[in-house]
């Protein structure tokens, strides 16, 4: 228990809040890696999920469904640390790009699957009604499907964001910056207060992102849809 109090006093030490090893610059690094990976993920997975979600008939629909679901399961099985280390060993340490590849590989499936499922779960009857009222394909997608699929899409984005922030912590193990730096350096120097300080920072960041998405859900999702899908 004392160790935790030590960690808390670590936050008050001088030099903790400035300089290249200070919390603000580590935060900036962490956010930078995360944001970059998140944007690439969204750019790949969101359009793909929206597109594949529209394949609803015939054998192709079965194949697409299976592949999308399998990708989610496979992503859960992939050991993040192993992929990171492999990417670095195969290229050179300290570079950002080899780190981004595993981050994106791990984050794409949750966005893809949830977007896909969100579009698929729009009832055919609703789509019929929209078309029957004279909506065009684009109008159906934007005014009906997107709002109805939104809760699941947000869930996918949240899962991906959390996943990325966690994995970005591990990037410090292969020589990058971010909050993980404190954990790795603290471990190397046997300074528990620094390790615990880093762990607390990452945990707080993750919880804040989680809350951000909860707020987003409250403001962006129509109450009618929210009430239907519960919680």
């Amino acid at each position: 228990m004392n160790a935790i109090f030590d960690a808390l006093s670590w936050f008050g030490e001088s030099g903790q809040w400035s300089g290249p090893d200070g919390i603000p610059s580590r935060l900036a690094e962490h956010l930078w890696y995360s944001l970059l990976a998140f944007l690439i993920t969204v750019a790949i997975a969101l359009p793909l999920g929206l597109l594949l979600g529209h394949v609803r008939h015939g054998r192709l629909a079965g194949v697409v469904g299976f592949v999308v679901m399998a990708s989610a399961n496979a992503a859960r099985a992939l050991p993040t640390l192993g992929l990171l280390i492999l990417a670095v060993v195969l290229t050179s340490a300290g570079d950002l790009v080899p780190i981004l590849i595993p981050l994106v590989i791990l984050a794409v499936p949750p966005v893809l699957v949830n977007t896909y499922a969100g579009v698929q779960q729009v009832e055919p009857g609703l789509r019929d009604a929209a078309e029957g009222m004279g909506m065009t394909g684009v109008q159906v997608a934007l005014r009906l499907e997107a709002p109805v699929a939104l809760p699941l899409i947000l869930l996918g984005l949240r899962t991906a964001a959390i996943q990325i922030i966690s994995t970005a912590t591990l990037a410090a193990y292969v020589g990058l910056g971010g909050f993980g730096r404190y954990i790795m350096d603290g471990y190397a120097r046997q300074e528990y207060d620094q390790m615990a300080g880093g762990a607390i920072l990452v945990a707080v960041l993750a919880v804040l992102v989680q809350l951000l998405f909860a707020l987003l859900r409250r403001f962006v999702v129509s109450p009618g849809v929210r009430l239907q899908t519960g919680s």
Partner: peptide
Amino acid sequence: PAIALFVI
């Protein structure tokens, strides 16, 4: 994150 929980 798992690593954070492990450390704490």
